[in-house]
């Protein structure tokens, strides 16, 4: 299965996936706490990181319509 994952998803991508799993397992082994009480929820940084990246991407792409102009916009 791992071999298939390597083939389909790529070696680096699969490695990052395994790292994600490893760091989640680490949280189960030790006691993690945050600077704020909300962060104490299980796997909170993992969810926050994943969702933040998606939100940044979606918002960024939607801003293209307003902010993106031709390369010579200021030279016209």
């Amino acid at each position: 299965m791992i071999k298939l994952l390597f083939q389909k998803f790529g070696k680096i991508n699969t490695s990052v996936l395994f790292l994600c799993i490893l760091f989640c397992v680490l949280e189960l082994v030790g006691h993690r706490y945050g600077e704020t009480s909300i962060e104490d929820f299980l796997f909170f940084p993992a969810f926050f990181g994943f969702i933040s990246c998606i939100v940044i991407f979606k918002l960024g792409v939607s801003l293209r319509a307003f902010l993106m102009k031709d390369e010579d916009y200021y030279d016209k």
Binding site: F23, G30, F44, F48
Partner: peptide
């Protein structure tokens, strides 16, 4: 432990999100 694991989770999952978007 908390700082290191929390930061590693945040960053690897954010990186994984980028990987998914690209892949």
């Amino acid at each position: 432990f908390s700082h290191v694991v929390g930061q590693l989770q945040l960053l690897t999952f954010a990186a994984f999100a980028f990987i998914c978007l690209w892949h």
